[in-house]
Computed example of a mutant assay.
Amino acid sequence: MSTDPAPPPALPVRRVRFEYPDDLDPAWNRRLPEFAFGANSVSLLMPYAEPYFIRSIRAALPQLDQRLRPQVESFLRQESGHYRQHRRFNDLVASRYRGITRLERWIERSYGWLGRTRSVRFNVAFAAASETIAFALARWSEAHLDEFFDEGDSIATTLFLWHLAEEVEHKNVAYDVFEAIDGSRVRYSLAMLTTFTLLAWFATLGTLLMVLGSGRALKPVTYVRLLRWSVSLAFAVLPVMAASALPAHHPRDFADPVFLPMWLKQYDPATGTMPLWRAPASVRRGLIFGP
């Protein structure tokens, strides 16, 4: 009788596509536009960071046990869906604010350089560490759902919450690949420091460009809010980063947020739709749909 544990199941692949109106305001939270700018600045990284993760994990596939492959391949399909939807959203952001296109070129060069010059083991460690940070961002966001999202544009809000919910769902996968091909805590810690530095640097630059472009640069409340959220986020993310670098750590040890995974279950695979966040039922269909 076999005692091998059951292979991890494949992840659901939700073929969601967002239709953004041409007049969508990138400051999609009118009460807290600074939060929208911060979220948008993270979105700017997705079309470059996530393809880098995908290439890194794919390069490791020949080294993996066949039992892991169904979950890993479905993880890659989820990531592919994320960056494609953010790419279209980012085009709207870049059309409204000067300097965003140039910033995107810097981001593209940075992740491209890592992919070309680092080893497969480092690149996989980078992907695993990045997924840990994304999970921490998801937990922090759920803790502030009412503050950050209740008065936000329904389409933009649904884009970000759908992505964050799937980050929770696949929090283990990139780490399992890293553990299977390497597992070095030193390499993982270095990759964690690198990905956090890039994220913080580019998110700061993107947020400042949008603050300047929106005319809010001379408003003291802008910087009070950004400082308060930065401190709150640091207290949420840094302990997760530190714990994840411990020798006995595995992402499954982290407690998942409660709401986001439950909300994700509202996806309708027959129609490829997610209900718009807090939108009236009459507009939930048709704005977000499958290919």
Rank of each mutant, 00 (worst) to 15 (best):
H249R: 08
A281D: 14
A94Y: 00
I181Q: 01
R69L: 05
P275R: 03
P5L: 10
R187W: 01
A200T: 11
Y97D: 05
Q66K: 15
I155M: 13
L193N: 11
S282C: 07
A234S: 09
T132H: 07
F89A: 12
L227M: 05
Y83N: 12
T197F: 14
V237H: 07
P280Q: 13
A125Y: 01
N29T: 14
V283Q: 12
P5T: 07
L209Q: 10
Q266H: 14
A203V: 04
T158E: 04
F149V: 02
R105P: 02
I54D: 00
R67T: 12
K171L: 15
L199A: 08
R225S: 08
R98S: 06
P239I: 05
L199K: 01
D150F: 07
V124D: 01
A248D: 15
P47D: 04
P257K: 04
T271K: 03
A60G: 04
H250A: 06
L164G: 00
W113D: 08
R84V: 12
F254R: 01
P62E: 15
Y223T: 05
A270C: 15
M274P: 02
Q78S: 02
F18C: 05
V283P: 14
D22C: 09
H250L: 03
R31C: 15
L103H: 03
S2A: 07
I181D: 02
A242F: 12
R185V: 12
L246V: 00
I100E: 06
S154V: 09
A191D: 06
P247L: 06
P51L: 01
L264R: 13
A255Q: 08
N29K: 08
N40C: 07
F53E: 02
L68Q: 01
G215K: 10
V186M: 10
A234G: 13
A128V: 09
A203M: 10
T271R: 08
G286T: 09
D65C: 02
V42Y: 15
I57M: 03
T271C: 04
F122V: 00
S80A: 11
E19D: 15
L218I: 13
R109P: 02
E108I: 07
P220A: 06
L260V: 06
S244C: 09
F235S: 15
R14P: 08
F53H: 11
D253Y: 11
F89K: 10
P26K: 03
S119K: 11
L209P: 13
K265R: 11
N123Q: 10
K219Q: 13
P280L: 07
E79P: 00
L209E: 10
R87N: 12
T101D: 09
L287K: 13
D65L: 06
W28N: 02
L159G: 00
T197N: 12
A270K: 15
F178W: 13
E151T: 04
A174V: 01
G99W: 04
Y188F: 14
S184D: 05
E142I: 05
L24Q: 04
P70Y: 04
V237I: 13
H250M: 01
L208C: 02
W201Y: 14
E50T: 04
R88Y: 13
T101Y: 08
S154G: 05
L226M: 04
Q266A: 10
P51W: 00
A243H: 03
P51E: 01
A174G: 00
A49S: 09
F235M: 15
L190K: 12
L103I: 07
F235Q: 14
V258R: 09
H170N: 03
